[in-house]
């Protein structure tokens, strides 16, 4: 174990952490606004990866250009899912809501298995092999692009939530949907849009991840678990918390893989998860009440 390995792990952890943050921000928005624990969130990411894969391999569309396709498609997909599936259970007990998203998770995962097959798929872009070196630390350009886009999305989303009328309405619903309704906000529409934005985050994350990683139908579960850890760490419904939490978990996993073995890296994540749940269930930075 030398210092270079540690630096390498730190850089890699921060780059991955940016992506975790993007996935988690979508999840935390759905959780904060609709109070829905969305187990299908990782499946949106998985579908985003497949969409990018087929856009590249069949239509020859550059993965990063594919963002222009995947973001609107996943926004509309999320809106439709909210309308058809989530809306009927919004007033149901928590376990029914969990079960519904679990059902959606099962359906999407196995639809992917059925239609796309169980094999690992990856894309080979011209720039995938471009390596950026700073001193002794190397990382691929695609990972850097993934990181920069993720951070950019997160910031745009943050400014949108802080400044725009719609963003303010979303935050109002997240704090008190009844109060929001009383001041004339169309809560039903806000729920739909929030779910759409959350889904679009996961879809965009999938597109950004495709040039870096491989896709198979089972990838969603890993990511949704990680995203839950990030969300709980940052505080449910807390956007800045999700960003910081993403970096913490990214660093934990890459340092865990460097210090122990790669197969054990998730262990550290889950242990942190349980500790946070037990000791600070409101997250490191406080949460909106769930």
């Amino acid at each position: 174990m030398n210092l270079d390995t540690i630096f390498q792990a730190l850089v890699s952890g921060i780059l991955t952490g940016g992506l975790f943050a993007l996935v988690a921000i979508g999840l935390t928005m759905i959780l904060g606004v609709l109070k829905i624990v969305n187990f299908a969130h990782g499946e949106f990411l998985m579908l985003g990866m497949y969409l990018t894969y087929y856009c590249y391999n069949v239509l020859g569309i550059d993965p990063y250009l594919c963002l222009l396709i995947s973001i609107p498609i996943f926004f509309l997909f999320g809106v439709a899912i909210q309308r058809i599936l989530i809306n009927p259970v919004l007033k149901s007990p928590m376990e029914i809501q969990i079960l519904l998203t679990l059902g959606l998770f099962f359906f999407l995962q196995n639809a992917a298995l059925f239609f796309f097959g169980p094999y690992l798929k990856s894309i080979k872009t011209g720039y995938a092999r471009a390596i950026i070196s700073i001193g002794s630390v190397n990382f691929s350009s695609t990972k850097l692009i993934m990181f920069l886009f993720s951070i950019a999305f997160t910031l745009v989303l943050y400014v949108f939530l802080k400044k725009s009328d719609l963003g303010k309405a979303i935050r109002a619903c997240s704090e008190d949907s009844y109060g929001a309704m009383l001041v004339g906000i169309n809560v039903r529409n806000v729920y739909m849009i929030a779910f759409g934005i959350g889904t679009a985050c996961a879809g965009a994350a999938g597109t950004l991840l495709m040039p870096v990683y491989y896709v198979d139908p089972y990838i969603g579960l890993t990511f949704v678990m990680t995203a839950f850890v990030v969300v709980v760490l940052g505080g449910m419904g807390n956007y800045i918390g999700a960003l910081v939490g993403g970096f913490i978990i990214g660093l934990t996993e890459s340092l865990g893989a460097a210090l122990f073995t790669a197969s054990l890296k998730q262990l550290a994540t889950f242990v942190i998860f349980i500790l946070i749940l037990l000791l600070r269930p409101t997250g490191l930075f406080g949460a909106r009440r769930m």
Binding site: L99, L100, G103, F106, F107, L108, N110
Partner: peptide, 16 residues
């Protein structure tokens, strides 16, 4: 995957 797809559909239908 087909049978688990049906699981998912049944589960969603039961919830709703």
């Amino acid at each position: 995957g087909a049978h688990l797809m049906i699981y998912g559909l049944i589960l969603m239908a039961v919830c709703i």
